[in-house]
Design a protein around this nucleic acid. Sequence first.
DNA 1: ATGTTAATTGGAACCGGTTTAATTAACAAA
DNA 2: TTTGTTAATTAAACCGGTTCCAATTAACAT
Lengths: 334, 334
Amino acid sequence: MATINEVAKLAGVSKATVSRVLNKRPVNEETRRKVMNAIRELNYQPNAQARGLSLRQARIIGLIAPDFQGVFYGPVVMGIEQVLQRNDFNLIVSRVQSKEYQLAKMLKEKKVDGLIIATPRRIGEKAILALKKDNFPIVVIDGNVGEQVSSVEINSYLGAFQATEHLIKLGHTRIGVISGPSSYKESQERLLGYKDALQKYNLPFEQELVSEGGDYLLASGEREMAGLLALPSPPTAVFAFSDLMAIGAIHCLLKKGLSVPKDMAVVGFDDSFVAQTFYPPLTTVRQPMLEMGVVAARKMLAMLSGEETEVTHVVLQTSLVVRASCGAVHQHQA
Amino acid sequence: MATINEVAKLAGVSKATVSRVLNKRPVNEETRRKVMNAIRELNYQPNAQARGLSLRQARIIGLIAPDFQGVFYGPVVMGIEQVLQRNDFNLIVSRVQSKEYQLAKMLKEKKVDGLIIATPRRIGEKAILALKKDNFPIVVIDGNVGEQVSSVEINSYLGAFQATEHLIKLGHTRIGVISGPSSYKESQERLLGYKDALQKYNLPFEQELVSEGGDYLLASGEREMAGLLALPSPPTAVFAFSDLMAIGAIHCLLKKGLSVPKDMAVVGFDDSFVAQTFYPPLTTVRQPMLEMGVVAARKMLAMLSGEETEVTHVVLQTSLVVRASCGAVHQHQA
DNA sequence: ATGTTAATTGGAACCGGTTTAATTAACAAA
DNA sequence: TTTGTTAATTAAACCGGTTCCAATTAACAT
């Protein structure tokens, strides 16, 4: 592998001049030509580590998330990567670790220029705030870290309101909820959206119709749906706070020989990949996941270039995607 | 951020000594204590770029794939990351680009120590072989690059054989196939597995029962299933070469009011996330995707440490996961 | 007291870039 | 001819580590 010194020797100039050519600084045209020829001849590629050491910049962003495969974080990764690639940055992905100090390691050792943290759990909160105080560039996606760190979030409240309103307009008056963990901010906001929609249409809120799924996964949905069905007066529609829980609910219904949406309308939350794949296709509140990644990455780059200096919180809007599971459209049209 | 020089000064030793302490080389116990104290006091973290420059090593592996969200590559990423993290390596993910030369860039600029390439398409084949000739560490997952590059693959043939045999044993004699692109090696092998299973049970192979999905996606499955149903004598079971195509096929069937598995048994391939999520849960050939990532990462690390020098090809075994869509088990047991 | 050996440690060079300050060359003005 | 100005280039220092080689010190045998 050729180095800048070899290029300089072959071109008959100093390495400072080669560096200038590489960085498009003013150089005599004749000299530039000679250097370019040498670069081509040696198939030279500047060493990123040497460059990074000198410029104190890795051109790498770190992403910390619970997983990358899941229905949620996959698209987020895609969005981030897309933006970074266009700006000649790379993306290191790392699963969230138990040891909090590990969070800081990549930043402190200058392996990455900034960190995007995507996790709904309150993990590493202290560590994050400490890093923020040291002025490391940090963006949180969908987190619970608070005002002091820049973030990208979604309007959970509005999404829940829209979903509930949609079901009400379809004629449902008893609408069950399969919630996420009540300690999560998102769950609280979504529940508020649900309540406010009921109120707008003068429908009573009934606590027994709200059941809390311990996580956002399929099995929770299936279990909680069974609970709702066992009520003296079961709901005719159910709104789950994740697509997977909605699908779990449908599993429960189909196993009992009930039909969706005829016997029970179901609405999910996320518009993850499985929502369109499932049958019946799932009506759901769309979270713009790819866009969240895109916005987070742009924000990070802006912070690094000094364009953005204050802490900001971007709230992306949700939208209702109507498919077959709520009964608003026929399945063969979906 | 403290540097090794500051640590050295505070500890009253030379930076060579600090370096020795950091790298656990023999140092007088008393000296080590002083150095460790200085490190702690300054909250010192060695600069990865400087270290990398000196050691000619980034401790980063690059992964190039078509996407990271998909049902397939997500778990692969998880597997790779898991192994790397344990060995204090990081993972840069990058989508496959059209420009072939980009493949080489990260390697040549020493941003990564090696490249794992996961793509069924014959992309960058020339570029990959060129890099291999320059002795860059490369591992291909599920690729079509040939003998010259180390790889991790699955036994497509056996998986298809098992799936077909399973359907035959359930009593089916006319088994449709929704294949992947016939130019892909996997498709060819899977088709061979299908044929050999038929042969073993003295069933005739009929070309009309094989329809080729242009990609591995849902819409292909739906379209090809419609084609199979339109045959004068349609199959009673269908084997799709991906879970998504199997699900597409089921969409087609359910829309026509047919029931799965009663009217048509369906088997997929991948055992991706959607296979368990779908209803009816999908019988499918499991590809150990996480394990593929794990094996690829281990292989890469072995190459880097010099333990593994020859080109090797690891073939992982598939297994049939029986769920409800093939009719072998009742749905409420699934 | 002197020589030998082993254990520690420090100075300096190096990895491959960028950048600042100094040098050289070319040319115009005095 | 001398001096000032400008443009282009280079030498050298620096980024923050690792490591080779030599120097120092301590311990021990002669």
